[in-house]
Amino acid sequence: MRTTHLLYLHGFRSSPQSAKARLMAERVRRDHPAVSWCCPQLPPSPAAALALMRELTADWPRESMAVVGSSLGGCYAARLATETGCARTVLLNPAVQPARDLARYIGEQSSWQDPAQSFYFRPEYIDELRAIEGGTLPHPGQCLAIIAKGDEVLDWREMVARHPGVQLRLLEDGDHALSDFESAQLDAVLTFLQLA
Rank of each mutant, 00 (worst) to 15 (best):
C39H: 09
P40S: 06
Q41E: 14
L42Q: 11
L42T: 01
L42P: 05
P44D: 01
S45G: 05
P46G: 02
P46C: 05
A47V: 00
A49D: 00
L50D: 08
A51P: 00
L52E: 13
L52H: 09
R54Q: 12
E55V: 04
L56V: 03
L56Q: 09
L56K: 09
T57Q: 02
T57H: 03
A58L: 07
D59Y: 10
W60R: 00
W60G: 01
P61A: 07
P61I: 10
P61T: 01
R62M: 15
R62E: 12
R62A: 14
E63M: 00
S64D: 10
M65W: 13
M65R: 06
M65V: 05
A66C: 05
V67W: 00
V68F: 12
S70I: 11
S70T: 09
S71V: 10
S71A: 02
L72H: 09
L72M: 14
L72D: 10
G73E: 06
Y76L: 15
A77I: 12
A77F: 06
A78Y: 02
R79D: 08
A81Q: 08
A81S: 14
A81H: 08
T82C: 08
E83S: 05
T84A: 03
G85H: 05
G85M: 04
G85R: 02
C86L: 14
C86T: 06
A87D: 11
R88K: 14
T89N: 04
V90L: 03
L91W: 12
L92S: 09
L92H: 13
L92A: 11
L92D: 09
L92I: 14
N93T: 11
P94N: 01
Q97C: 14
A99I: 00
R100L: 13
D101P: 03
L102V: 14
L102I: 11
R104E: 13
Y105R: 10
Y105W: 13
Y105C: 09
I106V: 15
E108P: 00
E108A: 08
E108G: 01
Q109M: 08
S110M: 07
S110Y: 05
S111R: 13
S111E: 10
W112V: 13
W112D: 14
D114I: 00
D114Q: 12
P115F: 06
Q117L: 09
S118R: 15
F119T: 01
Y120K: 06
Y120P: 01
F121G: 06
F121A: 05
F121H: 05
P123R: 00
E124D: 15
Y125A: 02
D127P: 03
D127T: 00
D127Y: 01
R130F: 01
R130E: 07
R130D: 02
A131T: 01
I132P: 04
I132Q: 07
G135F: 08
T136M: 08
T136N: 05
T136S: 10
